[in-house]
Amino acid sequence: MPTSHNEHIVTSYEDELTALAASISEMGGQVEAAVADATRALLKLDHAAAKQIIAHDKQIDEMHRTIDDMAVSMIARRQPMARDLRAIITSIHVAGDLERVGDMAKTISRRTLQIEGLSLTPKFYNGVKHMSDLILRQLKAALDAYATRDATAAVEVCNADDEIDALYTSLFRELLTYMMEDPRNITQCTHLLFCSKSLERVGDHATNIAEAAFYLDTGRQMSESAGDLHRIQIKE
């Protein structure tokens, strides 16, 4: 009887599935790096690095298109079923989310280029840095859950999203306080606020990827009951 990790009878199909998974991993790695670099460039106001990230986004978009093409071609030619079908469908979703995350890195970098003639104060940007660390951890965990088809890890990622939302809310309040304290802080705090919003959205995409991982592993959609999943609304 076949054991686990059976290969497909048609070798070229197996190769295509492997290549698709590898492409997602590669795109995931590039996008993670883009977010990390974008945050670093922002905090250091490194314009050269920011420009590089913006230029690199074209490559991320290109990977997205390639993955879409691979998936569509496989659906048309192989009529995938069950696990293979789920792997291909979720790859389309995940690549879409990663492309959006890449855009967020680009947005942060564009903002970095707009900030001129002032240096950011660590007091102000520490919250953003902390948030960025947390987001990157989430993104990595989501991509790992997807690559290893681990539903349990995927649920953990979704549950941790609340933490990010809470962090964003507190960061929002904190930056608002600095602005009220001294109107001269408004410019840099507003920039940081927009960037933290972009980061928060990266977290949402990480959640989407985790949901795709859950579906890939179990064949079921992650429902409300899968965990205490609710989004904290920003009331202010």
Binding site: P2, P80, M81, A82, R83
Partner: peptide, 16 residues
Amino acid sequence: FTNPKNKQTQDYITGR
């Protein structure tokens, strides 16, 4: 066809 419970079914319908 989307989520078979049994591994043998999975292997058969996906061509393994």
